[in-house]
Design a protein around this nucleic acid. Structure first.
Lengths: 146, 146
DNA sequence: TCTGAATAGTTAGCATAACTAACGGTTAGT
DNA sequence: ACTAACCGTTAGTTATGCTAACTATTCAGA
């Protein structure tokens, strides 16, 4: 029977693991030729559907000017289209192109493969445990971000 | 009894949680007035002790020229000192100043507090579960990075 | 021992990405 | 109709990533 760890200990470990995990999966993204911030924004556009620029900026926790230039890059690469909303002409509506959608799915697939490789040696019980741990953290993160 | 999730599902959830968790804790770092890459490098110098520039670059998964400039910033802010090794005069030895050490500990404490806040509502069993999950992932990450 | 290869770090030049401040165009409220 | 609020862009600064090319130092072999 091992001693129960303190919240501080667990916080430290969870933080360290999250940090290294992100480094581990991000190494796959360079193959796509799309810079990280653009890739992240594209992901929201593809999987979240059409959005305005401000909403996207909020979702990515970035200021509007920053998002404006990220979109510049995506439009220049033909991955996203920019159009003004008919109802409210102040709004900019972003839509992923076919090319953008294709690249995003490829990227997602690459990252997932990489993570699945990592989880490969784990047994059923460990996989289930990771799933429950993810759920717990996801639930708490939702209460803090919304 | 709920159905066991596939490795792909778990990979997706773990990835998503790690992503949001990093965003959540990083929001605390702006208060320190030290940019993210510099903070990360400083962390290695403070907690890992003296290192050469190349070793630091490897640890941070960055090219030497990039690390050289990150160190420029840390030296300019008086958080780190640069000196050439006596034995091998090609090497640059980085050491954290008192100010650098102080700031690093403050940053670590802020991040941990933030994470402890997140974990606050969780019960004992959930904390233990997160601890085991961290251990599992940490172990797998070690086999892939070393 | 001397000469050439390898290693460590820096400099220069480029692209991406973050910020604030300031601005123009659009909509909404009184 | 006027004013305030809102949305997005432009301009300018700083930070961070890369490759290529360079200097200085060390090492290895003839």
């Amino acid at each position: 029977m091992s001693k129960s760890p303190s919240r501080e200990d667990v916080a430290r470990r969870v933080h360290s693991v999250a940090l290294h995990l992100m480094r581990y999966v991000r190494s796959q993204d360079t193959a796509l030729g799309v810079p990280p911030a653009q890739l992240s924004a594209l992901s929201v556009i593809v999987f979240g559907g059409k959005t305005s620029l401000s909403d996207l900026a909020k979702a990515e926790q970035v200021r509007p000017p920053t998002m404006s230039r990220i979109i510049d890059g995506l439009v220049r690469s033909g991955l996203v289209t920019r159009e003004t909303d008919k109802r409210d002409r102040r709004l900019v509506i972003l839509t992923a192109t076919d090319k953008g959608t294709r690249i995003m799915h490829e990227g997602r697939s690459r990252r997932e493969k990489r993570l699945v490789d990592l989880l490969q040696p784990l047994v059923r019980e460990e996989i289930d445990l990771l799933d429950r741990a993810s759920d717990i953290l996801a639930k708490e993160l939702r209460t803090w971000t919304h």
